[in-house]
Each structure stands twice: as structure tokens, then as C-alpha cells.
Design a protein around this nucleic acid. Structure first.
Lengths: 216, 216
DNA sequence: CCTACCGATCGGTAGG
DNA sequence: CCTACCGATCGGTAGG
């Protein structure tokens, strides 16, 4: 028997509110009562849909992981030109998390709360497509456009670290510089891209107007 | 009246066990009962020393912040040569967090749980000495040893992001590459240093054997 | 989706 | 540092 539209709707609402609350208050800091209140139903009604808090958590993370698995491989192929392939991959990656900062927050929280479970899930679901990037970097190394002393695997991890760190914690940590209006993480994103580019490419700042440059 | 040695001892034990538990389970996931059990006393006895869970948290973070304020300025002056000044600052910074991964874990957890409070504390206590690094980078820029397109503030934040991220989450996120034995974050540290160097310096890999190099 | 309820645990207090 | 206890809230169930 297919689900009623209302059933799908309420399940989506539950997941949505739960992600929001898990991101800001964490799993242990979020009671079922709090989630029920955010939706506007009674706690016992919430438990009719999810059966337990643990199952709710599982569904939240399954939802998030499926986003990764569906969107990320596709955005990785959104790469355009030769030099811009790098920029577009980074930008797409950043955009994905920037779109909703809850994604990186819950990811970090989960890594801290349940490292073993996340390790397993990450290995199982994300290992294969990230291999593609590694191979691409290794290829660039052989072609001489990528710096020879790079460690591709570690490089990718460090870039991921900067991305999720910036989106989740950037507005807090950038408060160290009181002169700027904090909360605006745009400068951080720009510098992150610059760092990633300079650490990867032999010629990080190409000058197209130089003689012999490919004009097309 | 001065504190008894036993008083100091028990307070240190309380802080120590609490940091450990806050790091692995978070504030909301750590009950006073759990802390008391770890120390080996009753919960009410714990409450004789700390009066409330909130006060316990404040003391834990005050303890951690004082470590920062005392050790970091001193390790920043541990810089040695001209080119190695960079490496030694980075290394000292990494070592500080690597020494006890709980430090970066609780830092990240606190940033997620109470962003406003951390923003205030960070601005108040860490803003001044981090200014020193910024100035140093700006100077290097004028001297032409630092890349001209760098954003010093954002650069420092991104390096911090990589450091605390690597120490706190590195063993989890590096599980994406199943070929390597995870948990060993040494390659991550090495690559982090390389990234930071290449993104900062005009000449990231000096060749001392070249003519005219300072041999001493 | 609700009312009514459960035992367990929460942070915290009284009193010694 | 302990025993004994408190009201409030936790995740979850019964029954409709």
C-alpha cells in the first residue's frame, strides 16, 4: 500500500526540524519533546512515526548521506575548462555545504559523537567517488600541472576539513578579528580557494594575456 | 586560608575527568553521575566542589583557555631561523593540540553548542596575540617573501581550521581511504604543513645548495 | 493523532 | 565526603 501524501509530508517535516535541532543543540541536547513542539504535535504522536529516538537519528543521517551520494558525484562532473575544472569542483563543493550550514554541523557532531559508526559509513558510501578525485590529482601530477610533493589523499581531506570547518565554525572563529564584522564568511571562502589552488597547482595564477596562451 | 593539597588534587581530578568526558560525549551527553563515577565519588560529593554543572563547564573552559593564553604566546616566540620560523610556529601549534586531542574536540563542541559565548571569549582573550601573526604576515608581504594575494586573517583561520579539524576529526574522515590504516594522522599533519607553506610563501621549497645560499 | 501514564535518570538540596 | 531525598524531564508504552 503506497504512503499517503500526508504521510510523506509529515515525515519530511520531522526530518527537517530534527536536522535543524541536531545541528544547533546536538543529539543529546535535543529531546523528542523539543522536536514535537517544533512540528506542532504531541511527543507520542512523533513516536508513532519514528518508533524511537535512535531510529530518528538513523533516518536523519541516512537522508543526509543520500544527498551526498546523489549530488556530489554529479557536481564533480560539472567541471568546465582546464584550469577552471579545479575552481568549479571546489565551488560546487563549497556551495553544497554553504546552502545549508546544518549539513556540516551535524556531520561534525556525528564524527565527534560516534566516530566508529561514521568511519564505517564514510568508508562504505563515500570511498569510491573520492577515489575519482585522487586519480585526477595523480594524473595532473604526471602531466606536471600539479605540484610533485603533494599527498593527494591528505590534500583532499584537508580541503574537506577547511570547507566543513569554515561553514560550520567560520563565523565563530573569525571573531578573533574584532575589526571585521564577523558572521560574514565570504573572505574565508575566498582564501580557502586560494590556499587550495596554491597548494595544488604548479601555476596557480595563470596569466592568459602572456604570449602563447591558449586564447579559446 | 589556603587550599589543602587534597582540595587542589581533587579539583584537578574533577577537571581532568570532565574534559575527557566532555570531549568524547559532549556537555549534554555527560551527566554529573558519569563524572562522579569516573572520579570514584558520589554525585552529591561532586556537587560539593562545583555547585552546579554549568559552573563545572565554566571552570573546564577557563582551564583550557588559560592554557592557550599561557602557552601559545610563548611557543610563538620559539621560532628559530628565517625560513624555519614558519615551520616551527606551525609545528608548535600542531603539537599543542596533538598533545591532547581532547583540547580540539571540546573547542569544536563548544563552538557548536554555544557560538555566542565562544565568539565573545575568543575576541576577548585571543584577539591580541593572533594580531601578532597577522602583522608578521603583512610584513612578509611587504618584504616580498609572502605571496601578495594572501588574506592574512582568513589564512590564519584556515590554518587553525585544518589543525583542530585534523586532530579532532582526522582519524574519522581519513577512513574514506580504506587502503591506508586509518587513525594514523601523521600524513595529514605533513600535508597540512605543506599546504600552509605553499599558500603562504613565494618560495615554499628553498634550495640551500644553490649558489649564494646562507650556509650557517 | 491524542490523553494518560510508566520507570529511569536528570541536576540539585538537606542534613549530617 | 556520604545517605536520603526532591521535582522535572527523559524516552517510551497503552489504549483509543
Amino acid at each position: 500500500m503506497p504512503k499517503h501524501p500526508a504521510d510523506i509530508d509529515i515525515r519530511e517535516r520531522i526530518i527537517e526540524e530534527t536536522i535543524q535541532l541536531f545541528a544547533t543543540k546536538g543529539y543529546d541536547g535535543t529531546s523528542l519533546q523539543l522536536i514535537a513542539d517544533a512540528i506542532g504535535i504531541k511527543k507520542s504522536s512523533l513516536l508513532y512515526h519514528v518508533s524511537s529516538k535512535e531510529e530518528l537519528r538513523d533516518q536523519v543521517y541516512k537522508n543526509l548521506l543520500s544527498h551526498w551520494k546523489n549530488e556530489l558525484p554529479q557536481l564533480l562532473s560539472t567541471a568546465s575548462g582546464e584550469h577552471d575544472r579545479f575552481s568549479s569542483v571546489i565551488n560546487a563543493f563549497v556551495s553544497y555545504f554553504l546552502e545549508n550550514s546544518n549539513r556540516s554541523k551535524v556531520a561534525i557532531r556525528e564524527m565527534l559523537d560516534r566516530p566508529d559508526e561514521v568511519r564505517k559509513a564514510v568508508k562504505e558510501h563515500l570511498g569510491s567517488w573520492i577515489k575519482l578525485i585522487t586519480d585526477y590529482i595523480v594524473l595532473g601530477k604526471k602531466l606536471g600541472v600539479v605540484k610533485p610533493d603533494i599527498d593527494p589523499d591528505s590534500y583532499i581531506i584537508q580541503v574537506i576539513m577547511m570547507v566543513i570547518g569554515t561553514v560550520a565554525l567560520g563565523s565563530v572563529i573569525s571573531a578573533m578579528f574584532d575589526n571585521k564584522d564577523s558572521r560574514n564568511i565570504n573572505p574565508l571562502i575566498g582564501e580557502l580557494e586560494r590556499i587550495a589552488r596554491h597548494a595544488l597547482l604548479v601555476n596557480p595564477t595563470p596569466k592568459p594575456q602572456k604570449t602563447g596562451g591558449k586564447s579559446s
